[in-house]
Amino acid sequence: MSQYIVTFAVLIFFWYILSGYLEPFYIGAGIICCAIVTLISTDLLFLSNETSVLRSVGTFIRFIGYLPRLILAIIIANFDVAYRVLHPRMPIDPGIITVDTPFKNDILRTAFANALTLTPGTVTVEVVGGRYTVHALVREAAEESLLREKDMQKSLAHVFGEGEE
């Protein structure tokens, strides 16, 4: 039940940002539309029935705290790619490597895949279970950084409340 309430609140907030009108007609239409969408797709937003709302909110807050480091990493990775593209001889040495992770949660796996795509010179090619197949622009540097990026895995696991073995 609390899942439905949270979904409805998030959606009605989203509606207000989109619309910006406070007249009764638009507010009423917003309430009806958000109720319809809540009925259709609450079970999409929350991954399983057991997920407690409090835990989701805690995850969200921790994730916002994690964002600045992610953004810094994204900026550094982008300048790296720009340097390699603009350099006359293009110093690249591409290759495919695999990374093993202990993640079990769907959202955690997705977040790590997208973080890998955005950050250290790698793009996620395939995710099977906890094993990530990754294409790297510079193979050795990526292997090195992925070994170092164990702390990225650890902090993401901490954000989503999954203990690392």
């Binding site: 989203f14 989109l18 319809i36």
Partner: peptide, 9 residues
């Protein structure tokens, strides 16, 4: 869900 709310908007 967000795409659906946007469509209704």
């Amino acid at each position: 869900p967000f795409i659906q709310v946007f469509a209704l908007y």
